[in-house]
Design a protein around this nucleic acid. Structure first.
Lengths: 240, 240
DNA sequence: CTTGTTCACTGGTCCTACAAGTGGCTTGGC
DNA sequence: GCCAAGCCACTTGTAGGACCAGTGAACAAG
């Protein structure tokens, strides 16, 4: 018999809207509501579940905030394709709070970025094709074209790292990489300072691609780590 | 002048409830609403923002689903302490869907676990103290006591890996580690099969602690990787 | 075939009413 | 003086009705 804490025995009442949400999630999980499908209207769901409009609306709003459906005023709500990116986007609001309320969280996030991108680099090096390498080189050229525009340069930087992650064929890695970089960039966009090292960034990117193309996991990992260690200075908060 | 996609020019109307949510989030971000504080009641917020009760309720529900506040029926809502764990818990619902809808996502998640825990192990090996090592050994003993109970054994396993992550002094790493392990465990709890290798798990844990205590980052990483590679077989989906 | 209009549907917002739950204060008993 | 029980004013949960604002399909006119 399983040991339980006293709280395990408590009867936890679910709100009506939570129960409606569970039903809707089950409909998505089972395929009864498939991506692209129209979501039954509020009035239909009221009748089907025998509840009032507030409970239905609360459940639908929860579905939308989790990225499961898209609600349009006056239009018919639709079921979204279930992707990692959609799922993680619900973290955006609170990520902003976590990063602004505790400056140390910026450094914590950087550490995770290092760990994830090093592992990603190793994996990508094992799977990199000539096409992958060519597209990464094209992205380096596109980034070079943005010299002089800090914001577009950073966006191109994110595109490079996200495409690198794509080589792993792991959609979760790709989504998490893009999400973290977006947070680091967006949070600091107002503090971004020209570091004067963009050419260094570009040549480091090219070096990484060289090792990726050679399918050299160790060299790719080391080049990536060196790149990240130097690039971190770009994300330092300006002295106050 | 920044290049913009056609969508950047669209006028996006914010719902009233979204605007109320923004105000509430700003109050949390600014400290006007601090952890432990009572959240103003629905009636007070209706008056303050000059909106109807539905808009206020929607915004408060969004705050709760993001873990920012706790609402109790009949009681006064409270502001939560902002932690990574609270933030990530909002992913639980959709993580279940992602993992059940696409079996490949289980493998994708395992890959990320490998990458994160390897990096975590390296970092932890650099920071491990005798106290850390002693507590890990105690957790191994506690896990040994759960032989014969698959569910509690797995919970003890999660506790071991989470405590290991704690050594890094990075709350984000700790929260993410615990979250991922909980997903992998919970999702498969109905499919869990005795692998007969629990003693191996325990001795591998002890080996990891030995290298942690010696502050040997390379050996810790390799031992952890070997452990994860073997342990992965335990999470295989039973043939259908 | 294109464009404009209409209308039935959709979601957004509000108000009123009542049910159910919580927490603080008061009172009575020991 | 302390503690427990009860009460009440507050809270959130749920519902129905009403009206506003937006969308999309159908149809008519040019």
């Amino acid at each position: 018999m399983n040991e339980q804490s006293p709280q395990d025995n408590k009867i936890v009442r679910l709100k009506l809207s939570d129960q409606v949400f569970e039903r809707l999630r089950e409909m998505v999980a089972s395929g009864e509501l498939a991506p692209g499908d129209v979501v039954p209207s509020e009035r239909v769901l009221m009748e089907r579940f025998g509840v009032g409009r507030p409970a239905v609306r609360e459940a639908l709003q929860a579905m939308q905030s989790k990225g499961l459906i898209t609600i349009t005023h006056g239009g018919r709500s639709r079921v979204n394709a279930l992707t990692a990116g959609v799922a993680f986007s619900q973290l955006d609001d609170i990520a902003k709070l976590l990063l602004s309320s505790e400056p140390a969280n910026i450094d914590h996030l950087k550490v995770i970025r290092h760990i994830l991108e090093r592992g990603t680099a190793r994996l990508a090096a094992q799977k990199c094709t000539a096409k992958d390498a060519a597209e990464l080189l094209a992205l380096i050229d596109a980034q070079r074209a943005q010299l002089g525009n800090a914001e577009l340069f950073m966006k191109a930087d994110i595109a490079f790292h996200t495409r690198l992650a794509q080589i792993t064929a792991n959609p979760l890695i790709q989504a998490i990489t893009e999400m973290m970089l977006t947070w680091l960039f967006e949070y600091h966009s107002s503090l971004l300072l020209w570091s004067g090292r963009e050419e260094t960034t570009l040549s480091e990117h090219a070096e990484i691609v060289k090792y990726l193309a050679a399918n050299d996991a160790d060299a790719t990992e080391q080049a990536l780590e060196a790149h990240l260690s130097r690039a971190d200075s770009r994300f330092k908060v300006a002295p106050s």
